[in-house]
Each structure stands twice: as structure tokens, then as C-alpha cells.
């Protein structure tokens, strides 16, 4: 009993200590961002590996999510004779929710895990330590550009996801199910609000980009520098990112769309 209490106490203390380290790490990273601006090359390289290399998975997933959404939406809407609103339904779901959330989950799996593994291995092979001894701050040189890249890439990827999804929805809706093409686009055009839907969607994906990249970089930086430590850190990145994204999405949705 006492032992279990002790274990619980230790674990609690451990997780608070980790939270503290994570916060310090974030602050250092944020202050390090200033040093990235005069060196756009560092940022561009990371934008490529975090953003451009995620294009394929985002595009294909977006297409299928849009197609499925259209299919399911049609069956429900046609019961009420409202299949003309299919475009609106697909676009709203994608721009408000599925675009930011699903692309953040994919991003955490594709780019976040890669970041953790990369940073963790750099730590395990003493590259970070070596950099420090060469008077180069790894937070500024390695972490900050990656963080900024994640922050920029996430909303762009979410936008791409939504756009492809809407096209996929149209493909199924008007191509397969015979929904009027004009109605699909017109309702969307009339009802999707720039401020209420698109800006809120961007805020969501910025938040998710911030959190997933932070988690990924910190888990790598804080990993036990062994093969097992890096593998566990990579797993934690994906799991914690998924939890944070879904939890934050609920909070953000409640705040943003509560009044509707």
C-alpha cells in the first residue's frame, strides 16, 4: 500500500517535473525563433521536410474523407429532400472540424514522429551535445526552425486537406449521386462564412500545429538517449499529440461555435 502510494507520488512528481521542463523548453524555443529569421535557409529546409513531404498523405486522406462525407451526407440529406445542401454540409464539416483535426492527427503521425526520432537520435549520438560544445545553441539552430516550420505548415496542410476534401465530395456528389453541380457550389458560397468558418478553422489548425510540434520536439529533446528511449518518445509523441488535438478541438469548438 505504502509502496503504491510512493509510486503514485513519484509518478505525479515526475510528470509535473516534465511539464516544467516542457514549458521551459517552449520558452527557450520561442525566444530562439528570432535567430531563425535572418537565416531563411534553415526554415525552408524544415518546411520542405515537415510540410512538402506531408503533401501526399494529406491529399489522399483529404480526398477520401471528402468522398465518404459526401456519400454519408447524401443518404441522410436525401431523406429530407435536402440533397442540394450537400456541398454546404461537406464544406462546413471539413473547414470547421475535419480539416484541422484529421490533418493534425496525420501530421503528428507523419511529421511529428519523424521530428521526435530525429532529435532523439541526434541526442543519442551526441550531436546536440557536440553542437553545444561548438558554441552553437541547438535550440536556436535545430529546434526553433523546426518549430516555426510546423507552425507554418499545419494551417497550409489543413487548408489543402479541406480543399481536396471538398473536391472529393463534389466528385461523388455530382458525379456519382447526381446532385446538381450548381447547387453544390452555390450553397457553399452563400453560407460558408469567412470569419465564422474559415478563420476559426485556421485558428484551430494553428493551435494544433503549435501543440503537436511542441510535443514532438520536446519528446525528442527530452528522450532517454538510447534506442529504447527514442522509440518510446516517438510513441509518446503520437499518443500525446492525438489526445491534445482532440481535447483542444473540443474546447475550441465550444468557444468558437457555442452561439450558433
Amino acid at each position: 500500500m505504502i509502496e503504491q502510494l510512493q509510486l503514485l507520488g513519484n509518478q505525479t512528481r515526475g510528470s509535473f517535473a516534465k511539464l516544467g521542463r516542457g514549458t521551459l523548453f517552449l520558452l527557450q524555443t520561442l525566444t530562439g525563433i528570432g535567430s531563425v529569421i535572418p537565416r531563411p535557409r534553415l526554415l525552408l529546409n524544415q518546411l520542405y521536410s515537415v510540410g512538402v513531404l506531408s503533401f501526399l498523405i494529406i491529399t489522399i486522406s483529404g480526398l477520401f474523407v471528402g468522398m465518404v462525407l459526401s456519400l454519408q451526407g447524401y443518404y441522410t440529406l436525401s431523406d429530407f429532400g435536402a440533397e442540394a445542401s450537400l456541398g454546404l454540409m461537406v464544406a462546413t464539416s471539413l473547414v470547421r472540424e475535419l480539416g484541422p483535426v484529421v490533418s493534425a492527427l496525420l501530421f503528428a503521425g507523419r511529421a511529428g514522429s519523424a521530428l521526435t526520432a530525429e532529435i532523439g537520435l541526434m541526442k543519442a549520438t551526441e550531436q546536440l551535445s557536440g553542437m553545444e560544445m561548438m558554441a552553437v545553441d541547438p535550440i536556436q539552430r535545430i529546434i526553433a526552425p523546426r518549430f516555426l516550420a510546423g507552425l507554418i505548415a499545419m494551417p497550409l496542410l489543413a487548408g489543402l486537406f479541406s480543399a481536396i476534401g471538398i473536391l472529393g465530395g463534389q466528385l461523388v456528389g455530382s458525379g456519382l449521386l447526381g446532385v446538381d453541380d450548381g447547387a453544390y457550389w452555390a450553397q457553399m458560397q452563400a453560407k460558408i462564412d469567412f470569419q465564422g468558418d474559415i478563420v476559426n478553422g485556421i485558428i484551430k489548425s494553428l493551435t494544433f500545429g503549435f501543440v503537436t510540434t511542441w510535443i514532438a520536439l520536446f519528446e525528442g529533446y527530452d528522450a532517454t538517449p538510447t534506442a529504447e528511449g527514442v522509440s518510446r518518445a516517438t510513441t509518446r509523441t503520437v499518443v500525446n499529440s492525438a489526445f491534445s488535438v482532440l481535447g483542444l478541438d473540443f474546447i475550441l469548438t465550444a468557444l468558437m461555435f457555442g452561439d450558433d
Binding site: M122, Q127, S129, G130, M133
Partner: peptide
Amino acid sequence: GMLFQSGALLT
């Protein structure tokens, strides 16, 4: 300058 056991070259 420091020479690490592993070399610590940037891979």
C-alpha cells in the same frame, strides 16, 4: 574544441 567518443558528426 572537443572530440567526442562517437565523433558527433552531424549526420
